[in-house]
Amino acid sequence: MKPLLSVENLRIAFPSRQGPVEVVRGVSFNLGRERLGIVGESGSGKSQTGRALLGLTPVSGTATADRLEFDGVDLRNATAKQWRSLRGARMSMVMQDPKFSLNPVMTIGKQLMEAVKLHGGKSEARDKSLAMLEAVQIRDPDRVMAAYPHELSGGMGQRAMIAMMLVTEPDLLIADEPTSALDVTVQIEVLRILDNLVTQRGMSLIFISHDLKLVSTFCDRVLVMYAGRVVEELDASRMSEASHPYTRGLLNCLPTITGDSRPLPVLARDDAWLE
């Protein structure tokens, strides 16, 4: 079966005073109907990889690839019109913090219905939006529709964001640290909702996070990124068989509930990983 998305040798560079700096250096992967996790520390290029898939690399940066194909469409030279028909309708993205990612002067309802209306469905926009808010387990969707983003808690805001991104039933959802800005207590709740919807609707998911443990729980396959490269790719169920020293080091640093090891283990970095 042909993969939904295939990426080959993706490179993203930003100019700096010392010449261009590559933040993503030759990332390649294929994605089918599955949940793929991308883990890495900050600056490893995982978010930029996610954004490049949507053609949202910041204007100052340049993204190149030998292949960047979504369902037969070559994304490398997609026109503005093609992008508009892909974004929202077929691929979308949930971002980190609903405090910043929702428009502060528009009601949730207006933002949600805008997504529906853009991809056909003017008449049923309201019903669809209400149903979607219920699907993300918001109990009083009418009130939330009329609310402004600052009137919602972080968890509620992020659920509204997920609703907004899934209401058009895309094929691919990119979740870029969707729970990092939330309280620990609501993190799992929001993730469960996201996971259920993705599974029910048979969507592909790219889950970007710095939390190795979380990613291995919610994904089928994990890419470990370090300094702009994929250093390891493995099945989530085979986490213990990781072979790259970076992944091993990260796993070693996870605290266990029984043994208390002092001093705490520290990740020893090796310059060889950069190559």
């Binding site: 997504a115 991809h119 907004m164 991104m165």
Partner: peptide, 11 residues
């Protein structure tokens, strides 16, 4: 960020 959100929606 909300501008990125709008772009993601296909606005």
């Amino acid at each position: 960020e909300y501008v990125v959100t709008a772009r993601v929606k296909g606005v």
